[in-house]
Simulated assay, not measured.
Amino acid sequence: MTFTGKSILVTGASSGLGAATVRRFAAGGGLVYAASRDQAKLAEVAESCADLPGEVRFGPLDVASPADCRAAVAAAVDAYGRLDVLVNNAGRHDFRVTTDVTEDEWDADIALNLSGAFYLCQAAIPHLLETSGNIVNVASVAGVMGEAYSAAYTAAKHGIVGLTKALAIEYLKTPLRVNCVCPGGMDTPQVATISVPDDADWELIMRVAAKRGMMTADSVAAVIAFLASDDASSVHGSIQMVDHGHLAG
């Protein structure tokens, strides 16, 4: 897959799946604008791509801020003069007992995991229509099934799936493509920082775990890159499970 001359905005790009996705596009010659709150880590990601055929520039983004979302799209367009691909990857999963969730926590979870993707799509679509570009949204297996102690996260990821389908229909008569990836458990830095309630039932939590174990971020980034590529020119409105077969049965 080649992305030579293509401008790609990747959110949540400072580590894990986002960083792997940046490297995948840069390896294909893409012009990547990597966005995240952590500028130091973004600089490290950009440095790791220095010997790849593509180019990586980076800038700040708090996806919980609609203004930041619009600014990130504008920055990506300013950086390369166009926008061909938007990858909505930013998000975070926090486990909480539903009855303990505060109003602020609910609002923050929805803003981070759903609303930000909407505002980024909203800002990016006019540019993507000009380039016959595409959007790849990153949801989760929690976007198609329930997950214990994750009411806000699960609701948001179901929302990402719905957002993908709604945009796919709305822009059916245009060249714009919109697809979604639903990863299962990945071995990323976020895994090490996730905490669960002290009295959590681990049998319920592990219901979402694939029998084949954790995936690498690179393996999921490869699917994102495929959906964003010209090789997937006929793939539109799809919800791609990348979960080691967990939901096959």
Rank of each mutant, 00 (worst) to 15 (best):
T2A: 14
G5Q: 03
G12E: 10
G12K: 11
S14K: 05
G18A: 11
A20F: 05
A26P: 07
A26C: 11
L31A: 14
Y33P: 05
S36P: 07
R37Y: 01
D38C: 05
D38N: 15
A40L: 03
A40V: 06
A40F: 04
A46Q: 13
D51E: 15
E55Y: 00
F58M: 08
D62P: 05
D62K: 10
P66T: 04
A74I: 04
A75R: 09
A76N: 04
A76K: 03
G81V: 04
L86G: 15
N88W: 01
A90P: 05
T99S: 12
T99G: 06
T102S: 15
E103C: 03
D109F: 02
N113V: 13
L114I: 08
S115N: 12
G116L: 08
F118R: 03
A124Q: 03
P126G: 00
E130H: 01
V136I: 12
N137P: 03
V138S: 00
S140A: 06
V141G: 04
E147K: 14
A148N: 08
A148W: 15
A151C: 12
A155T: 14
K157R: 13
V161I: 08
A166N: 14
P175D: 10
N179E: 05
C180N: 12
D187W: 02
P189G: 07
Q190C: 01
V191D: 07
S195P: 01
A200Q: 05
D201E: 07
I205N: 02
A209N: 09
S219P: 03
S219A: 13
A221Y: 09
A225P: 04
D230M: 01
S233M: 05
S233T: 14
V235R: 02
S238T: 14
S238F: 00
H246S: 03
L247C: 06
